[in-house]
């Protein structure tokens, strides 16, 4: 399953942030997004996940294939680690959570309520959710926030295993993951803002 993005322009809060973004992501490939804060990495990932429409351009291959992980992990504090994972597995129509639990070493925390986990453990649980979705394209927004070096290695291993099985990953991150990944610097796609006095369209 190839994700193809051609000539994409996206906006955040009504202002265009990126324009002319084009790339293709083939099976077994990882693409790392770089760019300064505010360039539109999160907006691009949310657009690819189908949470918001692009202004112009075409996205192919993102129907029912993308597993999205944003800044928030979508965990319920009163449910246990196991219940949280089971819930997402059932929503995505898969059964198995053991692989995900093992990959992020959550075995000792299985019956702990998610609310009692540390920030790094919560993030690990959030990333383990990607494994139970069974979706081929992972779209990850700053996945390594609050992870220690050991957990970053777990994450890199999980991504590598996913790529090995023919999946692909699109990761916005600033740290070196040690993955064999292409880099895409978004700095070159910054949208030119419309002139400030041109407000009649948005004001009426």
């Amino acid at each position: 399953m190839t994700l193809t993005v051609s000539d994409l322009s996206i906006a955040r809060g009504g202002l265009p942030v990126l324009q002319g973004v084009s790339f293709a992501l083939a099976r077994g490939e990882a693409l790392v997004l770089r760019g300064p804060n505010g360039i539109g990495k999160t907006t691009l990932l949310r657009t690819l996940a189908g949470l918001q429409p692009p202004i112009t351009g075409q996205i192919d291959g993102n129907e029912e294939t993308i597993a999205y992980a944003g800044h928030a992990d979508g965990l319920k504090p009163t449910l246990t680690v196991e219940e949280n994972l089971h819930f997402w597995a059932e929503i995505f129509g898969t059964k198995e959570i053991a692989t995900a639990i093992d990959a992020y070493e959550l075995n000792g925390l299985r019956s702990r309520p998610a609310g009692a986990l540390s920030a790094g453990q919560k993030r690990r649980l959030g990333l383990a959710r990607m494994l139970v979705t069974g979706r081929p394209i992972w779209v990850l927004d700053e996945p390594t926030v609050s992870l220690d070096t050991g957990a970053v290695a777990m994450f890199a291993d999980a991504v590598r295993a996913h790529l090995g099985k023919g999946g692909s990953a699109l990761i916005a991150t600033h740290i070196e993951l040690g993955l064999d990944a292409r880099l895409l610097d978004l700095g070159g796609y910054r949208a030119s803002l419309p002139a400030l006095d041109d407000f009649d369209g948005s004001f009426v």
Partner: peptide
């Protein structure tokens, strides 16, 4: 919405 579940549900098959 606050804990991001709604975003994830919107990208789920449901």
């Amino acid at each position: 919405w606050e804990d991001g579940t709604l975003d994830l549900l919107a990208t789920a098959p449901l």
